[in-house]
Design a protein around this nucleic acid. Structure first.
Length: 443
RNA sequence: GGAGAGAUGGCCGAGUGGUCGAAGGCGCUCCCCUGCUAAGGGAGUAUAGGCUCAAAAAGCUUAUCGAGGGUUCGAAUCCCUCUCUCUCCGCCA
């Protein structure tokens, strides 16, 4: 959420910055509502002040044993007027809030201007794509030939965009998550966290998925759709929960409504969770294989940072994600997303793209963003600053990494002519020393 | 699932209709006193808004005692709904 005070004082500038990321801010509507708000709020507060003062007088008079009938008559009609004013105010403020809730973050000055993916800026590459002397296969063929990747069964169980992994691939998948967690905890200083996979709507509003992107989420009810409590307000309804689309949601919301002592900053959290996405609007995209699934695992990194240090933290965060690919010896490149391609909450985003030989392309495997105070303002996540005053934190998140896509990268980059797949050396200790997945080896 | 108790400021804790945004204590900050350490005295110490103002300072003002609603001229206090925590019983991985 943007700072409404900043919008009031610097509207033109803010609107033009939003335009750079392809968002048209409703300037006219905002101005109209603001003018109304000012009028109604002042009026309401005057009425409230009058009521408070009069009530105090009544109290004093009664204590002295004086007659209060005259004063009572004076406020006789105040109640109705006040109620009306209060409800008008509430209405206007809800409308303003609605505008703010669907307005994306401002891009940082260092973000290149652009409209789409095509305008993203490559900033570095690591590793050299391997050249193959045989006809390469994609991860689906590799996995199915090994007998360890089974999309047919997955479709029977749950439909499209799900997968069943077996034997060595299931284990490799597990090994990857363990390896990532261990690296971030032991080498990068993250606190390992286990979090709920079902969260309240408040959490999703806090990180920016709601109210705008509800169609991308899965919602669950306890006890089926006939549960009587479904009629209760969604916010406080314990029987309506959302499946997390990323661990960013629970991890970042850990600091919601908190004031963190200065000396505890930065907080660095890591969690391995499944992620659930409806993938509405991506019909026909990446339909084959593990790239785009309704359910996938991810190791997520979150920093809760001092505002003055959040851009240092972003560089650090990216380097932590890169480290995983380096250890796995997978070639990748790092992109700065242009203003038009960034997510809703981000002020600046780096994508890490891993080399996928079968696609002959680099594909996103991690997205690392600094959201500055955008999420913190929605969450009321603050710290006590050097002057002892509460101040909004900066929040950052990044994949470190998407486990399923990393698995894809390994299957494709480490494939051999005989259909087997070499296990990267850093993972072998997680696989009881196994150094390859062979066709007859899986069970 | 059943029975009961509770939720107040950074923390503890008082407050059952009226000058209560809230006694007292702890903690913290500043000042004073005291030749070590300690102790004592004084002052200050919630958050988010709005208006006045070019701005700052300042002033005025509103809201907030788990959340939402209600009663009332007036609610931390009374009523209703919900959430969470604790204790006991039952059930369960």
């Amino acid at each position: 959420m943007l700072d409404i005070q900043q919008l009031r004082t610097d509207l033109e500038n803010m609107a033009s910055r939003l335009a750079k990321r392809g968002y048209t801010f409703p300037v006219m509507q905002f101005n109209t509502l603001e003018a109304q708000r000012k009028l109604i709020q002042t009026h309401t507060q005057e009425l409230q002040a009058k009521r408070n003062a009069t009530s105090r007088q009544i109290g004093i008079a009664k204590q002295k044993g004086e007659d209060v009938a005259a004063i009572m008559a004076e406020v006789a009609h105040l109640g109705d007027k006040l109620k009306q004013a209060e409800s008008q105010l509430e209405h206007v403020q809800a409308e303003l809030q609605q505008i703010l809730l669907v307005t994306p973050n401002l891009a940082h000055d260092s973000v290149p201007e652009g409209k789409s993916e095509a305008d993203n800026l490559e900033i570095r590459r690591w590793g050299t794509p391997r050249s193959f002397d045989f006809a390469i296969k994609d991860h689906v063929s590799i996995g199915e030939q090994l007998g360890l990747l089974d999309f047919e069964t997955a479709a029977k169980l749950s439909g499209a965009r799900f997968n069943v992994m077996k034997g060595g691939i299931a284990r490799l998948h597990r090994a990857l998550a363990q390896f990532m967690l261990d690296t971030h905890v032991q080498e990068h200083g993250y606190a390992e966290v286990y979090v709920p996979y079902l969260v309240h709507a408040d959490c999703l509003r806090g990180t920016g998925q709601l109210p705008k992107f509800e169609e991308d989420l899965f919602v669950v009810h306890a006890g089926g759709s006939n549960h009587p409590d479904l009629t209760a307000p969604a916010d406080q309804n314990p029987f309506k929960l959302h499946l997390i689309p990323t661990a960013e949601v629970p991890l970042t919301n850990i600091v919601r409504d908190e004031i963190i002592p200065l000396e505890q900053l930065p907080l660095k959290f890591v969690a391995h969770t499944p992620c659930f996405r409806s993938e509405a609007g991506s019909y026909g995209k990446d339909t084959r294989g593990l790239i785009r699934q309704h359910q996938f695992d991810k190791v997520e990194l979150v920093h809760i940072a001092h505002p003055q240090k959040s851009y240092e933290a972003l560089e650090e965060l990216v380097s932590h994600a890169e480290k995983i690919l380096q250890k796995l010896e997978l070639p990748y490149r790092v992109m700065t997303l242009c203003s038009g391609d960034m997510g809703f909450s981000a002020a600046k985003t780096y994508d890490i793209e891993v080399w996928l030989p079968a696609q002959n392309a680099y594909r996103e495997i991690s997205s690392c963003s600094n959201c500055e105070a955008f999420q913190a303002r929605r969450m009321q996540a603050r710290f006590r600053n050097e002057k002892g005053k509460p101040e909004l934190l900066h929040t950052l998140n990044g994949s470190g990494l998407a486990v399923g896509r990393t698995l894809v990268a390994i299957l494709e980059n480490y494939q051999n002519a005989d259909g087997s797949v070499t296990i990267p050396s850093v993972l072998q200790s997680y696989m009881s020393g196994l150094d390859r997945l062979a066709i007859e080896g899986g069970k």
